[in-house]
Design a protein around this nucleic acid. Structure first.
Lengths: 166, 166
DNA sequence: TTCTTATATAGTATTTACTACTATTTAGCT
DNA sequence: AGCTAAATAGTAGTAAATACTATATAAGAA
């Protein structure tokens, strides 16, 4: 088990230098992908991509905005937001599971898991005995107070899938 | 495997009548818990608790608010919000994993899982080979387009844990 | 039952996240 | 260099959640 970016436990992210070396290659791949998808390669897109590619901290749009602003002082937050969504669309980034949705409450204390439609944001329950007692890795339990370990599935529900086809 | 509240696939929630029968018992237990925790049993708390206890749809604060408003027309949204948080604090409800946080992006496409501190909202990566190829239950894969299956761990990080002690 | 007080609430204001809109600019093609 | 669809900056708007303050009330004490 490798904790890849857990600074609290004193782990050092040894991947950093590698990341910078790789950035050139990553950028090339990114350019290529943009061309394939007929997306214009703009300075804004490059900077947003770079900010995300070298980050290990799962930044919010605001945090990426702050970083990009250093290179492009009058970039707009809207552009950063749009670009982040574009990057997710083409698969070079993704939205951390569950984040970005309104706070939802659950009064069902029985053992169960959730799956969510990423389009309509509906959340469904399911129970799968195999997942009832899933254990977080031990060294995570040693370094942190573990409250809950769940399996989380992101789906597109039938309704949204059909809507998408039209 | 039981899909407990998946209406899209035509499953009917057979638990509904049972839920209403159980509500009385649940309420009694809730009153008892409130007394233990020195929390006043107010009409607002009762209605919020009831709304959540009979719901299977992981409602947002707004949705609970709308429901409670029918019984208590001039309840405030703030009260509903506070009460929902109180219910989470005493353990009779919980916040659906990941929801309620700002949208966060991840540029790391390598196979990995996330754990999040519920206090400071920081997200950390970890890799645990066992979780690399975790499979959603088959009948879920049949009814929905599954995009991603991850293990999600909620923790309190050391910093926040120590802060809490003081 | 009435009194007292800490707790909880209603109503409003504020903050923050995110999306929408429009006029302007620009990347990529010819 | 010129053209055009796509992208952007700047601003406005919307929605979610928290913060604040004066008022109301639950629950224990008298």
């Amino acid at each position: 088990m490798i904790i890849t970016s857990c600074k609290l436990k004193g782990y050092i992210n040894k991947g950093c230098e590698l990341k910078l070396v790789n950035l050139e290659n990553k950028l090339e791949a990114f350019y290529k992908l943009c061309k394939e998808r007929k997306l214009k390669i703009t300075p804004q897109r490059i900077e947003v991509y770079k900010a995300l590619a070298v980050s290990t901290s799962h930044p919010s749009a605001d945090e990426v905005y702050a970083k990009v602003k250093k290179a492009l002082p009058n970039v707009s937050l809207d552009t950063v937001n749009r670009t982040l969504n574009t990057l997710s669309d083409i698969g070079v980034a993704f939205v951390v599971e569950g984040s970005g949705d309104v706070k939802r409450f659950d009064g069902n204390l029985d053992n169960h898991q959730h799956f969510k439609c990423v389009k309509c944001k509906k959340i469904f329950d399911f129970r799968y005995e195999q997942f009832d007692n899933i254990q977080a890795p031990r060294n995570l339990e040693e370094g942190f107070k573990v409250l809950r370990t769940t399996v989380y599935v992101e789906v597109i529900c039938r309704m949204c899938f059909e809507k998408e086809q039209n």
